[in-house]
Design a protein around this nucleic acid. Structure first.
Lengths: 244, 244
DNA sequence: GAGTGGTCTAGACCACCAA
DNA sequence: TGGTGGTCTAGACCACTCA
């Protein structure tokens, strides 16, 4: 019997449509915040039924890559919209008060990727990177010390001024200034004691417990594009995680 | 077919089917791990098309309440299956090694709900509760100090022996011993210093940085059924969170 | 009222699994 | 081989938005 010899590479039609739509997003045919063609138009374009296009869009919508709005249309997700700014920030005030976010650039220098970073970002060891350190302040209180590393090539021209201007949302700035859209991130959390450098920046004693958040962000095609280590003071804030 | 007539009360049919299926789950018609009737049977039972039942099951499946298996059928999710044991545990070894989990009951006593717990569990202040403290050991190293509070009524008979026997998975034990199935949880994380009680249990110095995980677990109908505070040593472990 | 996404149906066929 | 979930189609109608 040759039942196992046949490997027909079967992929559902709607998965293929999903790839086509994603390619149009990468190619810049539809830019962040813009509307994409209606389901009927896309069905005609790809020569499939509306239901199949629908299933592809459903999937992209579940991944927060597209946003559907009944009666209006389907839009490309963005980190720029006021409603979903700071999409990846899970830290909220315990009291529930609304907070004013401020952002101060500490440094922004050109460096080279060490073994660890090169592996995470999928670049060669020694490849050019840009390294940013900044302080995030919530309602006047410094709460997060961020250490950010990105590959230099797609982010050529990134500097301290741009970090200052972005009002806390680096992702919004990546989109508008460099055309890089983050669609997903992985975070690894642990508790650590403050180092002297961080203790000074946050106004704490050395060894004070901080929440360490190591984040890798991915753009289309699951390509890693940013490494980040955030050290957070969590006396009045917590990190929310929903399990299902 | 009796469709909705008044627009403000409009709820899609598949949402109503979803409620009916959930009620059968609550009522115990289909128990954890068991197979539920096929889509065709359910369509006949509820007098809707297979596609509508399908959409209801899709939704429950996305919430990890039902599990679909092509060619076999649709099953009620459980915390008991070997494959998905410890479904809510996001803490993994940094080295990636497989770990042996052990579980030691420290105490298990009857208490009364204070204002904070009564609010969280949705019971009256002063209502009877059961309070468990235990130590979780990974590969021989004590790593998590758990403080657990559940309402006494649905968990009558819970004791230290049952905690010891459950091999670390309280949820599996809740299901088989008390018929309570957790379907969702919310966790709030922060960094804290070890108190003397916890420091002794974990073999640390007082003030040592620990990851504090406060978890509320919900059963069907989003009813809160367990409060838990886990204090975790994260020197060799991290908590994984995926953002989309 | 025209256009968009959202629901619902009915039917055909495909991929997977077990007996 | 028969039953299950999974895909795909075509068409009807509903709810929402905006000009």
């Amino acid at each position: 019997m040759d039942k196992q010899l046949i490997s027909p590479n079967y992929r559902p039609l709607y998965e293929q449509i999903k790839v086509l739509i994603t390619q149009s997003l990468i190619g810049g045919e539809w830019r962040p915040g813009e509307i994409i063609p209606s389901e009927i138009e896309l069905a005609a374009r790809y020569k499939v039924s509306q239901g199949t296009v629908r299933k592809a869009i459903d999937s992209l919508s579940a991944e927060n890559i597209l946003i559907r709005r009944q009666g209006k249309g389907t839009f490309v997700a963005t980190h720029n919209a006021d409603v979903i700014k700071l999409r990846f920030l899970r830290l909220t005030s315990i009291s529930g008060n609304k907070e004013l976010l401020q952002n101060e650039s500490i440094s922004c220098v050109k460096t080279k990727a060490d073994a660890y970073i090169s592996k995470i970002l999928g670049i060669k060891a020694g490849a050019a990177t840009i390294e940013v350190k900044r302080l995030l302040t919530f309602s006047g209180r410094p709460l997060i010390y961020d250490h950010i590393i990105v590959p230099a090539v797609p982010f050529k021209g990134l500097n301290g001024a741009k970090v200052e201007e972005c009002n806390g949302s680096m992702y919004s700035m990546y989109e508008s200034q460099f055309g890089v859209r983050m669609i997903r991130a992985e975070e690894r959390l642990k508790a650590v004691g403050a180092t002297s450098e961080v203790a000074i920046a946050l106004g704490l004693q050395e060894g004070y417990p901080l929440l360490s958040i190591e984040r890798v962000s991915f753009t289309y095609g699951d390509k890693p594009m940013e490494w980040r280590l955030g050290l957070c003071l969590t006396d009045d804030h917590h990190y929310l995680s929903e399990l299902e």
